[in-house]
Design a protein around this nucleic acid. Structure first.
Lengths: 194, 194
DNA sequence: CCTGGGCATTGATCTATGATAAGAAAGGTT
DNA sequence: AACCTTTCTTATCATAGATCAATGCCCAGG
């Protein structure tokens, strides 16, 4: 829980004593690589704070094709926000790309934390706004940029993920086929300008 | 201010007396068709509640191509949330597609409303979450669906906009060229199954 | 240390959508 | 009504990226 502790104390500015109160609401869980922890139809009852490892959320269309919405490595929170907030059945899968350790954050925790720390509420607000900003950038990229540009953007945004995520998943995140990504990479290798 | 009044009283459950207090913070503004009310580099100091008319927000890349992020007709709020919240320079344009009447909502208003009505804060939260959900759906569509599918989705989601928004703007929203949209429409007209 | 199943690469097509260009239609303005 | 501008359509050609198929690679488990 080291990362999460740090997260709470710095980002949400939770005091030592409040911290003691809060951690009682939490559960830690180990998730083996490949394990699915949320699937369509289920309500997303927890947000998953990644202590260690790597998660992904994705949709699957009727013909079985996956489309990755988010990766979450250490210190990221992965969840279906809509499902959790509105208490609706999710349309997403969430599973583990690596053996992963997560902190389960339920609504009870959120409520308690909101009561206890005014910063927590504020930090949550910031997190939501960041999410919106991030999604907006992604929409804009999808509307305007070529596969190559999107890939370069990905590299810049998530340099650490390049080596941890299989290439076909990156392709899925970018909205192209693995073959296309392979070609894009080849072309980039040839013109190593800069 | 009729629409906005209704909006405040129902969605944010503001009482009559509080309402009187709040409206002092507000300004109404008429915006002629084509007028730009936010441009890149400026900080978005107001959210625009559309009383009547139609706004759009969009980006423009270096070669002058526009990419529409949002339309906002009656009862919608249009703004650059990131710029407003984080007090950063915006990267968006906002302008009027029709002669439009907006309510200017500044941060002073938000703060006051939060003080006065607990529901207001809550409603704001809901609005943010809705925004996220909506963006996520759009990302998923852009990742997975053809131009035709995206267009049909648009029709279903915004039936009223089809007649009010010029077709090339819809194309821009969908991430395709006006010519392509014209083609898509032609094909849809030919196969009027269902 | 073999071996089999994901992954990545590569090549050969195929297809949806882009680019360009031109004409037709639709509005607004005088 | 006549005119000009903007929007929409249509046609042709060009291209990014998809699809299909084959090969090689790697490394995880027996």
């Amino acid at each position: 829980m080291k990362n999460f502790t740090k997260y709470l104390k710095t980002k949400a500015q939770v005091s030592e004593e409040n911290f003691e109160l809060l951690i009682k609401q939490l559960a830690v869980k180990k998730i083996a690589k490949g394990t699915v922890i949320l699937r369509p139809g289920e309500v997303c009852k927890h947000s998953f704070f990644v202590e260690k490892g790597l998660l992904r959320s994705y949709t699957m269309n009727t013909s079985g094709k996956e489309h990755i919405l988010q990766f979450g490595s250490e210190n990221w929170i992965v969840a279906d926000r809509s499902s959790a907030f509105f208490n609706e059945p999710s349309e997403l899968f969430i599973d583990a790309i690596e053996d992963t350790e997560v902190i389960l954050i339920g609504s009870d925790f959120i409520e308690k934390a909101n009561e206890i720390s005014p910063y927590f509420r504020k930090y949550n607000q910031i997190a939501l706004q960041n999410h919106i900003r991030h999604q907006q950038k992604r929409i804009n990229l999808l509307l305007s940029a070529s596969a190559e540009t999107r890939y370069m953007n990905f590299i810049q945004l998530y340099p650490d993920l390049i080596s941890r995520v299989p290439q076909w998943m990156i392709a899925s995140y970018l909205g192209i086929t693995p073959e296309s990504l392979s070609r894009v990479r080849k072309e980039l290798a040839n013109k190593p300008l800069k």
